[in-house]
Amino acid sequence: MTNEIKTKNFRLKTPPTIMEVIDGEAIMINGEKGTYYNLSSQATLIFQCILDGYSLEEISSLNDLEPDVGKHIETMIDKLINEDVLEETNKVNHRASPSQLMIGNFQKDIVLTIYDDMQDMLALDPIHEADDVVGWPEKK
């Protein structure tokens, strides 16, 4: 699987996932699962490169990544694919220049944290019962 991941391009799978970057860290929520994902700032840089249309192979070579670090990132991407956060795309559209891809080479700084303790709160909310056609309030 890893060779495939290395050369492929990915995009955010939305729906069901939404994303926001706060203080340099990406936060994503999968609305179907209600799962919350937090990427460390280094992981966010890599993630943004991926969303900018770079393959992992390109990111690795542009940044001269250690093999262990490359493998660590592959595992992270694989997890995000399995979590329906990322999906493969054929549309390659480099939105950033290679000079913007400078990332650290430390495995410990590239962290994906997955939280499933808020699933009831964050999943798509099924409480709304407004009429599909007329909404609320009904015309008086």
Partner: peptide, 21 residues
């Protein structure tokens, strides 16, 4: 202004509001 939203639209807005975007 009249407020006419389907259940799906409301659910989607509610979900999108989870994040500050």
């Amino acid at each position: 202004p009249p407020f006419r939203l389907s259940k799906n639209d409301l659910n989607l807005i509610d979900f999108e509001s989870r994040l500050s975007s």
